[in-house]
Design a protein around this nucleic acid. Structure first.
Length: 571
RNA sequence: CGGGGCGUAGCGCAGUUUGGCUAGCGCGCCUGCCUUGGGAGCAGGAGGUCGGAGGUUCAAAUCCUCUCGCCCCGACCA
């Protein structure tokens, strides 16, 4: 492609709309332009990269035996009602009424649609297993789109869905996708971490997130550098604290703490470290009340809490309920004398002589001890991991970092197949629900993640596999016909090479501008034809990543390129 | 959705507090000259509903009311 014939609008200055490097560079390098909040146009260069990612994804999905389909972006609201996810997505759904008044939704995801199809078209165990996938735009009315294509209202996702006759089949399908994901991200040149994840709104029981560690990532990642344990914030647990040996249990003392109802206020007032305090949260689930005890500096993980109690959801009790069951204003709840089930975090069970609410307005208790002063009904890991926690597997200190979620695999089980009645007949003629898995990849996010991890002050540094063009040819002076003819010859020669995309910067601009642009748009290999060519018939080949330079004669250009392409790690 | 900020040429911004010449600057763009190895120089030029609507005033980018859009922090989130 000749630069003069395509559209690559590079910018010298960073646009004010962008905060993070990948976003700035995607705009400056002319990959994207914002059309409205959370929706971006892909310009020619961006489209080339997008298609490279999609090609890799498609090749690996096909290799793993998945079958491509293409589902509509429009969906009838009833399908989401039937699966119960209308509420789950809530205001994130982009809905409208068609001219007949029918409620229609721009699909945020396609579990229901695919299940509907498979329910109708696949009825026998003989047709299973099957994994179907598509590459489609999804629509979610994000409360706050940000960071360019990292969080947008409209984004491209590869979503795959597996259907099996039993658990064993699901495990096999899951593993196939898991392995395919590794190959995809490897080919994209991404360094990623596979974290254990909670299945969240998707439902189901096993899940992994593929994360690219990055300070701009919006997901929290818990890592153990020692044994490799990694999990997302919802899922991660920590090693229980060992209780103090033979603690001398002091006498309980009631203390006047007027108007001090937060941990911070009480801690400040009594000059007690929050670690030495225990907070009591009254929770409810389907009208059942229970108390949750946490160390003052810890935070409850409601997902884990519901999980360990075997409940589908839990929620904090309302103010009136709290005041009724504790007999005190909120902020003074405590476990002593409380008449309900008490669930305590490991960290609380290991403590002695702590400070907690007295169930009496404006009073707290000092030196409270479990067993002696109150009974814990259940001890469990029900909080978020915090700094200083240790690995649940090897007890090494855990690291808390951030990551960009680029892929997610779930074992769904029968959640949707039961809700939407997607059954099959087994060999005995018995009707059973299909066992499902679902697998997503954020296509646009891969691009942002790569740029986030692979750029310098001059611009993007593409890996060979995603580069919009592998090679850029730069004649230093387009008016010098000797150089220009040589450049054209090289261009024609490279265009004849298989699988190589080449950009010819034929613009009549000063060389500095062209070098800066080439660096900005991140082309891995530059071929520069300048003064040296007229003198020695040598052209310069320069690598974007390493800066490595070599001079080669015209007739050896092709050979040198082949050598470089073989040795891709340097590029 | 709560809090904060911004909207002036394609991009980045000044001017708004205290209303007053023909609305400015840098980059980019067009023409010519010159130049050709890391975002050159000179000369000339095009480009503006000052986000929109209404109001106050002799006079509004500037003051008032309403409205639309965008960004940041928080909450939210496969």
């Amino acid at each position: 492609m000749k630069w003069s014939q395509t559209l690559i609008p590079t910018l010298k200055e960073s646009p004010s709309e962008a905060e993070i490097d990948s976003h700035k560079l995607m705009i400056r390098a002319g990959l994207i332009r914002r059309i409205t909040a959370g929706a971006y146009a892909y310009l020619p260069l961006g489209t080339l990269v997008l298609n490279k990612v999609i090609t890799i994804v498609r090749e690996e999905m096909n290799r793993a035996g998945a079958i491509e389909v293409f589902l509509p972006a429009l969906q009838h609201l009833d399908l989401l009602k039937e699966s119960g996810r209308l509420k789950v997505f809530g205001a994130d759904l982009i809905t409208f009424q068609d001219r007949h008044g029918k409620e229609t939704v721009l699909s945020p995801t396609h579990e229901e649609v695919i299940t509907y199809i498979v329910k109708n078209e696949i009825n026998s165990y003989k047709q299973l297993p099957i994994t179907l996938y598509q590459i489609q735009t999804k629509f979610r009315d994000e409360m706050r789109p940000r960071f360019g294509v990292l969080r947008s209202k409209e984004f491209i996702m590869k979503d795959a869905y597996s259907f099996d006759i039993d658990e064993k089949g699901l495990n096999n399908s899951y593993q196939l996708m898991y392995d395919a994901y590794c190959r995809i991200f490897d080919r994209c040149g991404l360094d990623y971490i596979i974290a254990e994840a909670d299945s969240g709104a998707m439902g189901g029981d096993a899940s992994h997130e593929f994360m690219v560690p990055s300070p701009v990532g919006e997901d929290i990642l818990i890592l153990c550098q020692n044994c490799g344990y990694s999990a997302n914030r919802e899922r991660a647990e920590s090693a229980p604290f060992s209780p103090q040996e033979n603690p001398s249990k002091e006498k309980v003392k009631e203390i006047f703490t007027p108007g001090k109802h937060t941990i911070a206020e009480v801690s400040d007032f009594l000059k007690v470290n929050p670690m030495q305090m225990v907070k009591t949260l009254i929770y409810s689930s389907h009208d059942q009340l229970f108390a949750v005890l946490l160390r003052g500096d810890h935070e409850v993980n409601e997902t884990r809490l519901a999980g360990v109690l075997g409940l589908d959801s839990v929620e904090l009790a309302n103010l009136e309920t709290i005041e009724r069951v504790t007999g005190a204003k909120t902020g003074f709840a405590g476990p002593v004398g409380l008449k309900m089930k008490i669930v305590a975090d490991h960290a609380v069970a290991a403590k002695s002589n702590f400070v907690t609410g007295a169930n009496k307005t404006d009073y707290h208790l000092l030196n409270v001890n479990p067993e002696r002063d109150f009974k814990i009904d259940q001890v469990a890991n029900i909080r978020y991991v915090t700094k200083g926690d240790n690995c649940p597997r090897c007890n090494h200190v855990l690291e808390i970092s951030q990551g960009i979620e680029i892929g997610h695999v779930f074992k769904l089980g029968t959640k949707y197949s039961i809700a939407l009645k997607a059954h099959y007949l087994d060999a005995d003629g018995k009707e059973k629900p299909k066992i499902m898995g679902c697998y997503g990849i954020g296509v646009n996010r891969i691009i942002a993640a790569i740029i986030e991890k692979s750029h310098d002050d001059n611009g993007i540094i593409w890996p060979m596999s995603l580069a919009p063009y592998h090679i850029i040819i730069i004649p230093v002076n387009v008016k010098d016909s000797i150089c220009m003819d040589a450049a054209k010859d090289i261009y024609d020669d490279i265009r004849a090479m298989n699988g190589i995309d080449v950009l010819f910067d034929d613009r009549d601009l000063r060389p500095g501008v062209k070098f800066k642009d080439a660096d900005l748009i991140g082309i891995p290999i530059k071929i520069i034809i300048g003064k040296k060519y007229t003198e020695t018939k040598e052209v310069e080949i320069k690598l974007r990543k390493s800066g490595e330079v070599s001079f080669v004669r015209m007739e050896n250009v092709r050979q040198e390129l082949e050598r470089i392409l073989k040795n891709q790690t340097k590029i």
